[in-house]
């Protein structure tokens, strides 16, 4: 997927009708329905996990080590080639 910098990974997914992302809150880190699993090699290139994001993810039964909320990942040049997968359900 080709995306220009300036949006979040969540917005990029929504704008391109990628299934598996609900984004109920519209990008305010307050619903946890844009949950993604980030491929290992990209993890340390992401902005650090914020306290709100951590708190929201902590309530997800599907959380893993590489869980992030895609609304909190900005599309930037350094993340060119980023690979994420979605959980079976957004909750």
């Amino acid at each position: 997927m080709e995306v220009s910098p300036g949006v979040s990974v969540m917005e990029a997914a929504i704008n391109n009708a990628v299934p598996g992302i609900d984004a109920d809150c519209g990008g305010f880190c307050s619903c946890a329905t844009c949950h993604v699993f980030v491929n290992e090699q990209w993890l340390d290139k992401l902005p650090p996990l914020g306290p709100n994001e951590d708190a929201m993810l902590s309530l997800s039964p599907d959380r893993r080590e590489n869980s992030r909320l895609s609304c909190q990942i900005p599309v930037v040049d350094a993340l060119d080639g980023l690979v994420v997968t979605t959980p079976e359900f957004q909750f």
Binding site: A55, S58, L59, P61, D62, E88, F89, Q90, F91
Partner: peptide
Amino acid sequence: HDEQRRVVQGVVAPA
């Protein structure tokens, strides 16, 4: 809140 909610959340999770 978070501790108690986590216990019962699974029953209404999509899985």
